[in-house]
């Protein structure tokens, strides 16, 4: 019982803190790649704290409801991850958040929100099946969907699921809103999108979506960590390398359109997963 409580608390605390730090690191790294100095490490926290205490400005009250649902879902997903629950269940809960964010954006009347929301839906459409297939890969190798069993597996899963790791990389790029998949909202698309999906979320509600996003990032990194769960060192190296690669890809590619994203991600992602799953199936 106390163990459960501690784990829940860990999940609730780790999400915002680690997520914010990762985001700060990300910004510094990006700045360095662009030969800038970049903001302080704690900048994301300053931003969120500022937003939380701004005036609440509302376009449609249901947007507020959706923002709260988004943060609730993504924090529950991370807590479930810490509780070592069923991986598919975690994906579903996480998807609730993503969908609520979209519904919130659609509930505004601004065309910019709408375009962003639809693009976000297309992003969900692109990554969701792949995420399920990654989990299926875990199951075929370890015989379980439960995180307890997956973490307890005797060898690093990366060795058996190399292609699925690449597939997860695609998912991560989309989920982290990195180029070339930052279609729905990003800091660089003012001309076409304003802020897309997030255009009409403001002040404290924008802060909520940001924190929720941190939860999601940590959840995804947690899923990445499953690929090398045998020792801490390997896990750390894997995570750092993966994230570095994400930032690098973000800085050397440009934003593409959804048509390309859907065909490319489904084409490459499904092929890679199929090959990897067939291996596992035969093995």
């Amino acid at each position: 019982m106390t163990r459960t409580a501690i784990l829940i608390a860990c999940g609730l605390i780790a999400g915002p803190i680690l997520g914010g730090l990762v985001s700060g690191m990300d910004r510094i790294l990006t700045a360095r790649m662009q030969s800038r100095i970049g903001p302080p490490l704690l900048q994301p926290f300053y931003d969120v704290a500022k937003l939380l205490f701004k005036e609440s400005l509302v376009v449609n009250v249901w947007q507020v409801f959706c923002a709260y649902c988004y943060i609730a879902a993504s924090s529950i997903a991370l807590v479930l991850f810490f509780l070592q629950s069923d991986l598919l269940l975690i994906l579903f809960v996480q998807a609730v958040g993503a969908v609520m964010l979209v519904v919130g954006a659609l509930s505004s009347t601004s065309p910019y929100s709408h375009i962003g929301a639809h693009r976000e839906l297309l992003q969900i459409l692109s990554y969701e099946p792949l995420l399920v297939l990654v989990v299926v890969g875990f199951y075929l190798e370890t015989g379980s969907f439960k995180l307890t069993s997956i973490y307890a597996w005797r060898e690093p899963l990366l060795l058996k699921l190399p292609f699925l790791f690449i597939v997860l990389g695609y998912v991560l790029t989309i989920k982290l809103r990195k180029s070339p998949f930052d279609l729905s909202t990003c800091h660089h698309a003012h001309q076409e999108l304003v802020k897309g999906l997030l255009t009409d979320y403001s002040g404290p509600f924008l802060a909520l979506t940001e924190i929720a996003h941190w939860f999601e990032v940590i959840l995804l990194l947690g899923i990445c960590s499953l690929f090398w769960a045998t020792n801490w060192f390997g896990m750390a190296i894997l995570l750092v390398a993966t994230y570095f690669l994400e930032v690098l890809v973000d800085n050397i590619t440009s934003r593409m359109n959804w048509r390309w994203m859907l065909s490319y991600v489904w084409g490459v992602g499904l092929t890679l997963s199929l090959v990897n799953l067939i291996w596992l199936h035969q093995g």
Binding site: R36, I37, P39, D47, K50, H190, L198, T199, L206
Partner: peptide
């Protein structure tokens, strides 16, 4: 631009009144 790099001070050009200070 990188020359002045205002992001050092946390300044971001958001281009959206809902997010701006």
């Amino acid at each position: 631009t990188p020359v002045y790099d205002v992001e050092r001070f946390g300044i971001i050009n958001v281009g959206n009144p809902f997010h701006a200070d």
